[in-house]
C-alpha cells in the first residue's frame, strides 16, 4: 500500500510533467488533452464536496457546468459582436476577460445552487437524485430553445478569452492557468475537509440525527456544501467552454452529470485526489479507446463495474488501502 500523500504527489507531478514533455516533443494536442483532464477534474472536485463529504448524490451538476459555460459564452458573444447585454434593469457590456468571466460563472452557479439546494435538500436519497436530475433537464431544454445564443447548435467563440499577461491561445499557457486553478481548488478542498465545517458536514452525511442533537443544522451544512460545490463546478464549466471555444446545451446534459459521478467513483469517493485520477483515466480512455471504437463507453462501464464490485474505494482505495466515504 502506498501512502495517500505520495499518490497525490505523484499525480500532481505527473500533471506537470506530461504537458512539459509534450511541449518539448512539440505535441500541442497532448497538452490540450491534459488540459481537458484538468478541467474535468476541477468540475469533479466540486461535485466531490457535495457527494463525497456531504453525501449529496446530485445528478444535476451539469447545471453548474453548463451555467459556467454559458456565462463565458454569453459574455464573450456580446464582446465579439459589440452588442450590449441587456439584463432587465441593467445593461452591461460583454467581456473577453477570463477573471471577470470566472467571477460571473462562480457567482451565478453559486446562486443557482443555493436555489436548487433550498428546494431539493428537503428530500433525500432517490428523490434528491430525481429532483437534481429534473433541474438539469430544465436547464438543458431551456438552452436548446434559447435561440439568441445558438439554441441546439451552440455558440462558437472565435478567439479564446484573455488573461492579463498571458497568451491563452498557446496551449501550455492555458494549461498552466487551468492547472493553477485546479491546485487552488484542491487546496481549498483540503482545508475545508479538515475544518470545523468539514467535520460537521462529514458527520451530517453519516448521522444527521446526531448532528441535530448537538445543536447544529444538518440541512444548512449541506446547503452550504452544495453552493460551494456548484460554484467550483461552474468555474470548471467556464474553463471548459474556453478550452473548446464553444458552448452548447450538451454541457447541461444529464450524461455529463453522470460522467462526473462516474469519475469520482472510479477515482475514489471523498478522497481529495479521487476526482483527479478519475478525470485523467476518463480522458485517456476517451482518447485511446475512442480512437479504436465508438463504443469505448463499454470499457468505461466494465471498469466502473469492476470498481463498484471489487474496489469500493476506487483507484485511490486500491493504491492506498483506504476505503472511500460511504454515501
Amino acid at each position: 500500500m502506498i501512502p495517500e500523500r505520495l499518490v497525490n504527489a505523484i499525480l500532481f507531478a505527473g500533471l506537470i510533467a506530461v504537458p512539459l514533455c509534450a511541449l518539448v516533443a512539440d505535441e500541442p494536442f497532448t497538452i490540450t488533452l491534459v488540459t481537458r483532464a484538468v478541467i474535468l477534474a476541477i468540475a469533479a472536485v466540486g461535485l466531490n464536496i457535495a457527494l463525497g463529504i456531504g453525501g449529496l448524490v446530485s445528478l444535476g451538476h451539469a447545471v453548474f457546468f453548463g451555467l459556467g459555460g454559458y456565462a463565458m459564452g454569453v459574455l464573450a458573444f456580446h464582446a465579439q459582436t459589440y452588442t450590449p447585454l441587456n439584463l432587465g434593469p441593467l445593461t452591461i457590456a460583454g467581456t473577453k476577460s477570463m477573471p471577470l468571466i470566472w467571477l460571473a460563472a462562480t457567482a451565478i452557479s453559486a446562486f443557482v445552487a443555493w436555489i436548487i439546494g433550498l428546494l431539493s435538500l428537503r428530500t433525500s436519497g432517490v428523490y434528491f437524485i430525481m429532483i437534481t436530475l429534473a433541474f438539469g433537464q430544465m436547464f438543458f431544454y431551456f438552452a436548446i430553445s434559447w435561440s439568441t445564443y445558438g439554441g441546439e447548435d451552440g455558440l462558437s467563440i472565435y478567439v479564446r478569452n484573455g488573461f492579463p499577461g498571458l497568451n491563452t491561445l498557446i496551449p501550455i499557457q492555458f494549461f498552466g492557468l487551468s492547472f493553477i486553478i485546479l491546485s487552488v481548488v484542491l487546496f481549498l478542498n483540503a482545508r475545508l475537509q479538515a475544518s470545523p465545517f468539514g467535520l460537521a458536514l462529514n458527520a451530517a452525511r453519516q448521522v444527521p440525527a446526531r448532528v441535530e442533537t448537538v445543536g447544529l443544522n444538518p440541512m444548512r451544512l449541506k446547503l452550504v456544501a452544495f453552493v460551494v460545490s456548484g460554484a467550483i463546478t461552474g468555474l470548471a464549466g467556464a474553463l471548459f467552454a474556453d478550452l473548446n471555444r464553444f458552448v452548447s446545451p450538451t454541457m447541461f446534459s444529464w450524461q455529463l452529470s453522470g460522467e462526473l459521478i462516474v469519475l469520482i467513483i472510479i477515482g475514489g469517493v471523498g478522497r481529495l485526489f479521487g476526482p483527479v485520477i478519475g478525470a485523467c483515466l476518463f480522458v485517456t480512455l476517451e482518447h485511446w479507446l475512442g480512437g479504436l471504437t465508438d463504443f469505448w463507453h463499454v470499457f468505461l462501464g466494465l471498469i466502473l463495474l469492476a470498481i463498484v464490485l471489487f474496489a469500493r474505494g476506487g483507484i485511490m482505495g486500491l493504491l492506498t488501502g483506504k476505503e472511500g466515504t460511504h454515501v
Binding site: A194, S195, N202
Partner: peptide, 28 residues
C-alpha cells in the same frame, strides 16, 4: 459517525456547543 475517529465524534459535540460551525479554514 462510524467512519470518523473517537476524537472527531467528540469534537462534533464541542463544535455544537461552540455554536460556530461556519469556519472553513482552520483545522478542526
Amino acid at each position: 459517525a462510524m467512519e470518523d475517529t473517537v476524537l472527531e465524534n467528540a469534537i462534533l459535540g464541542s463544535l455544537g456547543a461552540s455554536g460556530r460551525p461556519w469556519r472553513f479554514w482552520q483545522a478542526a
